[in-house]
Design a protein around this nucleic acid. Structure first.
Lengths: 215, 215
DNA sequence: AGAATGAGTGAGTAGTCACTCATTTTGGAG
DNA sequence: CTCCAAAATGAGTGACTACTCACTCATTCT
């Protein structure tokens, strides 16, 4: 039903975590996350998770009391994986270019975010839905990721004001849905054409800046 | 697991459709859509659909060859329900106020869209995920709804240009992810406070217009 | 009135799945 | 090498589910 897209490899992102827990647990989580992404939680059979992990079905239940528990322990893991993916690139852009004008920063950040969504689209589109009917798990993700994003937006806006590039009236709380929304909506609606995307991002930032520049 | 929120009532939106098909079919679809919204497709039992519809389990299979077929015939139905909900309010705003300045139109449209998402949030957040692992069904929704939205955005932009309010450089293709994105992101990130929302929408449109106004 | 119809029913069926546990394999200590 | 405990295995199990079908009975037709 679903094309067997390229797999994630959690282990690559979890070198420290691997040390503190048996690696078979990671193998199972890794297999499960990919299976859930392909078929969704309910439609994924424990047998298939075992096959993907290259172990026996029974072994799963040595490490997790139930199939549900796999999903539950997946959330903190995903937060761990996604937090640095969200934070690191923005920090790099900000720190490595202390004098970059604010519009170049915005362009760089937006391009990076679009790329990030493309890279992790399979997860974002496919594992999230498995959580949607489990409000507490979803909320866990929300509260650990949204403030992080918000924090970086505030940081960028503050810096722009400090450099005298942004008008004092610019409200970070409103900048957030604008940037976040552009990325989200652009990812959903536009097909991928790198050149055109670059132009669109430039133009979008340009139109934002017209309203935001220090008056 | 999931709070039993208020039910939809498809019948209210489908008076014509009801005439062309036995109303028991609608009852089943109505029950199913609400059950899927609460628990997701896979986790919903045919027994529960029957209970919600107030009929026997066997009756379901007189009208639908399989549980899957219920989901499949739900898509064209949803398109029918959502298309007027997307189009009608915008058409009304445009036609009833032929001289309304473009920024007031944008404010009205955005407020209406936010309200619409609040009203249909349960469907949007909960039935869509049931379709996510069925690419063909999802694509059906996408191709019948996105161009519709796009069309209205173009219409608004054209009108703004014709009235000499918007600069010719404003590109409808970019306006779309901006508006759509703001609505989407605002719905996800902000908690509901009508007063604040009104102010935020005003401010957002204001900042858009600064960049867009005829130069 | 009596016959024919077919929508509606729900107990039953075949099959599937998450989870168990008796058995086998592994790997390290002596 | 032997011994043994822990790890791993996968056939087995009971619970449960989508779907079936023989039967009911209200309604319509003759």
């Amino acid at each position: 039903m679903q094309k067997p897209e390229e797999n994630y490899d959690l282990e690559a992102y979890l070198s420290e975590y691997v040390e503190t827990c048996p690696d078979k647990e990671i193998r199972i989580l890794n297999a499960a996350i990919n299976a859930f992404a392909d078929k969704g939680f309910e439609a994924t059979r424990t047998r298939e998770i075992a096959e993907r992990a290259g172990i026996a079905e029974g072994t799963i239940f040595r490490y997790f009391p139930s199939k549900n528990a796999i999903l539950e322990s997946m959330v903190p893991l995903l937060i761990r994986v996604l937090q640095p993916k969200i934070g690191k690139p923005i920090e790099d852009i900000l720190n490595l270019n202390p004098d970059m004008p604010i519009d170049r920063i915005l362009v760089a950040v937006l391009k990076d975010r679009l790329q990030m969504i493309r890279d992790n689209g399979r997860f974002i589109k496919s594992v999230l839905p498995s959580l949607i009917h489990r409000a507490p798990l979803l909320e866990q993700l929300r509260v650990s990721l949204l403030p992080l994003i918000e924090g970086y937006v505030v940081q960028v806006v503050e810096r722009g004001k400090a450099h005298g590039e942004l008008d004092e009236s610019v409200d970070a709380r409103l900048v957030m849905p604008q940037l976040f929304g552009f990325v989200l909506a652009y990812s959903i609606t536009q097909s991928v054409d790198p050149e055109r995307e670059a132009r669109d991002v430039e133009q979008f930032v340009e139109s934002l800046m017209v309203g935001w520049r220090k008056r």
